[in-house]
Amino acid sequence: MLTRPVTADLLRGAVEVEHTEHGLLPHRLPARGRAQCPDEQLLTIESQPSGVRLVFRTAATLVELDVLATKKTYRGVPTPPPDGVHELLVDGRLVGRAGVSEGNVLTVDMSTGETETRPGPVGTVRFPGLPEGTKDVEIWLPHNETTELRALRTDAPVESVPPGDRPVWLHHGSSISHGSNATNPTATWPALAASLGGVELVNLGLGGNALLDPFTARTLRDTPAGMISLKLGINLVNTDLMRLRALTPAVHGFLDTIREGHLRTPLLVISPLHCPIHEDTPGPTAPDAEAVRAGTMRFRATGDPGERAQGKLTLEVIRRELERVVRQRAGEDPNLHYLDGRELYGAHDAVEHPLPDGLHPDTATHRLIGQRFAELAFAEGGVFAAGHG
């Protein structure tokens, strides 16, 4: 077996990489942005490599990857989430899934936000029995586990693959875009939509942190892309972060910053998907204590609908304002577009595909959302159709 360290030239979908004592850690926000908001939840989320994959060319029939995973659990919930999944594709076709049970364990107290990390060992992801002959291999990293990459072992030499001519789709959103509740990394709706659309994905879906932060806007501004989408709104309600008075200029400022680096790039603003608990009820969102005591995770809205008169945000309020802002700007920015998120997941879908925890879709619903987005954005007549294929 040939052993080599994992190097940045093998990675796609990361904004930046960090060399740690264990190997290479992909990041989805740059160091400067991370330093401007030392929030522990954000730092955990951005280091979870949603959409990040290793890409290389090899004749190997056996591939092993040494990783140090950080697994997230919740205090009071007795059943831990399943291990993160690594998926291996050969020439675009899925041929294997594997994970590691070893690693660090990060325990989160949902009531206080406090966290505790218990160190653990490096594990090995193994993919035997690959097809003979030279091929392009992708290993998609777990979307929901921080993963430090220590070493790559193969039974034949590996070479990096130069970027092809597929355009880059840069997407930013909340935990749904991050992939929450999807069972595997290629099943998140952005990964599926990118595959159907024939584009290269850079996924800046940041669970709980699509909050119109200036450092996120600068990251989007500075990341090369042929098309950009922003799914905004739900986290502003979850966190009860701002009122309507602050929302409007914050959205304008976010778009202004992105346009500094992408003046004419097609830019799609997506309003929130349907979420029954917050359609007309403000946040903040909180875990349902009764469900947690029963051993499951479920969320509820704790705001008062009457507070909308004081400027508290609901999903209905945010949809109206996002559409108004886009229409206001579209006269001077013909490459700016709006999509009502309910076209991806609406009230009728909630009957057949309810959100299991009240906030996040399951894998089947991720598939539905990804297919609809691909049809609306990448297919003929879609806002991104001219930028791909």
Rank of each mutant, 00 (worst) to 15 (best):
T147G: 07
T79H: 10
T186N: 02
E102W: 00
P128L: 09
P38F: 03
E375M: 08
R319H: 11
A309Q: 12
L267M: 13
V122R: 14
G92I: 08
T79M: 12
A59V: 05
L170A: 07
G33W: 09
D165T: 15
G283T: 05
P162E: 10
H353A: 12
G179R: 04
A210M: 13
E148F: 07
G173K: 03
Q310K: 12
L29D: 01
E114H: 10
T248M: 10
R327N: 13
R53L: 08
A187D: 13
R298W: 10
L232W: 04
T3N: 03
H172I: 11
G205C: 05
E323P: 11
I139G: 03
L313W: 02
E343Q: 13
A330C: 06
S180H: 09
T296Y: 09
P128M: 05
A386V: 09
G261I: 07
V199I: 05
G358F: 05
L368A: 12
A14F: 08
A330I: 09
A374W: 02
G205V: 00
G253N: 15
I270F: 09
S229D: 07
T146Y: 00
T314P: 00
N235T: 07
D362N: 15
P162Y: 07
G306F: 06
N184A: 14
E114N: 12
Y338T: 07
H337F: 14
D349P: 01
K71I: 00
R118I: 15
P334W: 01
L68Y: 11
K312C: 12
T134V: 14
G306Y: 08
L376I: 11
P163L: 10
I176A: 02
V85T: 06
V158E: 04
N104C: 11
E64C: 11
L273D: 06
E316A: 15
S111K: 11
V168D: 01
F384I: 12
S47I: 00
Q41E: 14
H143K: 04
P305R: 05
H262N: 09
V168H: 02
V125S: 02
T223F: 10
N104M: 07
A301E: 04
D240C: 07
I45L: 06
S101E: 13
W169D: 01
P190F: 00
R293M: 08
R32C: 02
A379E: 15
R300C: 08
R12S: 10
H360I: 14
L368R: 09
R93I: 14
L152V: 06
E323Y: 05
L359P: 05
A194N: 01
R342G: 00
L106K: 15
N104E: 14
L268D: 11
A187N: 06
R243I: 08
L212P: 03
T44A: 11
I318W: 01
L236W: 02
V100K: 03
L322E: 12
L65F: 10
D91H: 06
L236H: 01
G341D: 04
R245D: 14
I234C: 05
T112H: 08
S50Y: 02
L152D: 03
T154N: 06
R93L: 13
R320H: 13
E114T: 12
